[in-house]
Amino acid sequence: MGARSLSRLRSPIEAEAEALRWALLNMVRFNYRRVIFESDCKELIQAIQEESYRPSICTYTADILRKLDKIGDHRVVFKSRQGNEVADRVAKEASNFESNSSVLFSTMPSWIQTYVEADKPMV
Rank of each mutant, 00 (worst) to 15 (best):
C58R: 12
S56W: 07
S106I: 09
Y32H: 08
S52Y: 14
M122V: 13
T114C: 04
E50A: 08
E117P: 09
S5H: 06
A94P: 00
E85N: 09
D73A: 05
E98K: 09
V77K: 06
V28Y: 04
A19R: 03
F97Q: 02
G72L: 00
M122W: 08
L20R: 03
S102T: 02
S110Q: 10
T61P: 00
N84S: 07
Y53I: 12
T114H: 07
T59W: 08
D73L: 05
P121D: 10
F30Q: 06
A47L: 02
K67G: 00
P12W: 02
Y115H: 15
A118E: 13
M27H: 13
L9R: 06
A15E: 13
R29D: 14
N26G: 07
S106M: 05
I112H: 03
A47D: 12
V86R: 02
V86H: 04
V86I: 09
E16T: 01
S7G: 04
T59G: 12
E93V: 07
E85Q: 11
R66W: 12
E43G: 12
E98Y: 03
E98I: 07
S106Q: 11
S80Q: 03
D119N: 13
G83H: 05
R34T: 03
R75P: 06
V123S: 08
E43T: 15
K79A: 13
C58W: 06
Q49G: 15
E93R: 11
G2C: 04
D88R: 08
S110G: 07
S39G: 14
Q82D: 13
K70W: 04
V76M: 00
V116P: 14
V116D: 06
E16L: 00
I57N: 00
V103H: 04
E51Q: 11
H74K: 08
P109R: 01
A47M: 06
R81W: 03
L68H: 01
A118H: 10
M1D: 14
M27R: 10
Q46F: 15
T114N: 10
L68I: 01
K70L: 09
D69R: 12
R8I: 10
R33Y: 01
L68V: 00
L9V: 05
S5D: 05
N31C: 05
M122L: 11
G72E: 00
R8P: 14
L6M: 07
K120T: 10
E50C: 14
D119L: 02
D63Y: 10
S106N: 10
P109C: 02
F105E: 06
R10M: 14
